[in-house]
């Protein structure tokens, strides 16, 4: 029994890291630019396709994944320039535009890549035994990479000049502008980083699940649940919520019912909104 629980816990952590990587991009863009970007899931999907085609072209998983990150970073910057720049400061218009983007990107992908599922050979296979626990090597690798991404991002916010500018803008937009932070540059950077994180998540998704044009909605849904669960705009909240959701799903499907796997997070979110209306870390806002 104890062993079973430990196994379930570790499975949950592995998925949770992946979820957190997606949620980080969503909460970052929302917190700083005020746009709830529904097209974020499309960056995950496109990142997965870049990885798939890279591997097929013989680049190998790692190079392909790096390519996915770069391509999605560029994609984010382009979207910001073409579309989201025009809706800054009006979050409902930003949301509406991102809904239109989902339709455009998803269906173009389906028309171009065909709706057939594709599979990417994971870079590692088999499983390793840690004491009595059997761990899938690939899932362990996903956990390691997502933890590294989250940690690297944290260091960037804390140490890099641009990271500090972002934190300044998060605290006070006008104040940041006054001390010389270029708000438009930060806004583009945020979209670029958010989309790059989604590209990385896409590469990791591709190594675990089927790649299809419609795969973007599930990570997006999870990302939304996490962003709200963690308190919209809160980076630590989104990370903590990511691992919490992974664990909740893992235990729920192991001990309750696997059919409702995707429902546990939602129930968690509804309960959190009812009883912790400002999110796990007290961010966000409530009350009319």
């Amino acid at each position: 029994m104890g062993l079973d629980i430990a196994q379930t816990l570790i499975d949950g952590l592995m998925v949770g890291g992946l979820y957190a990587t997606v949620a980080l991009g969503i909460t970052l863009v929302f917190g700083l630019v005020g746009i709830l970007n529904f097209a974020h899931g499309q960056s995950v999907m496109l990142g997965a396709y870049v990885t798939f085609f890279g591997v097929q072209a013989g680049l190998g998983f790692w190079l392909s994944a790096a390519l996915a990150v770069l391509a999605m970073a560029a994609f984010g910057a382009i979207l910001e320039q073409l579309v989201f720049r025009r809706t800054l400061g009006d979050h409902m218009a930003g949301l509406a535009v991102s809904l239109g983007l989902i339709m455009v990107i998803e269906n173009l992908a389906a028309a171009t890549f065909s709706p057939d599922p594709r599979f990417v050979d994971p870079p590692v296979s088999g499983s390793i035994m840690v004491g009595p626990l059997q761990l899938s090597s690939q899932r362990l690798l996903v956990l390691a990479i997502s933890t590294a991404l989250i940690g690297g991002f944290y260091l960037f916010l804390q140490r890099a000049t641009l990271g500090k500018a972002i934190r300044a803008m998060a605290q006070n937009r006008q104040g940041a502008a006054l001390v010389g932070v270029r708000v438009s540059l930060v806004s583009r950077t945020i979209f670029t980083i958010g989309s790059a994180l989604a590209g990385a998540a896409g590469a990791l998704y591709a190594s675990l699940f089927a790649v299809t044009p419609y795969m973007g909605n599930t990570p997006l849904t999870k990302g939304f649940i996490l962003a709200a669960l963690g308190g919209l705009g809160s980076v630590p909240g989104a990370i903590a919520a990511g691992f919490l959701l992974g664990i909740a799903e893992s235990f729920g499907s192991r001990y309750l019912s696997a059919s409702f796997r995707d429902g546990y997070g939602f129930i968690l979110l509804i309960l959190a909104l009812l009883f912790l209306p400002t999110g796990l870390f007290g961010a966000g806002k409530a009350r009319v």
Binding site: L157, Q171, L232, S234
Partner: peptide
Amino acid sequence: DMPDLATAS
């Protein structure tokens, strides 16, 4: 020390 981005939202 992580930023609380919600203030900007």
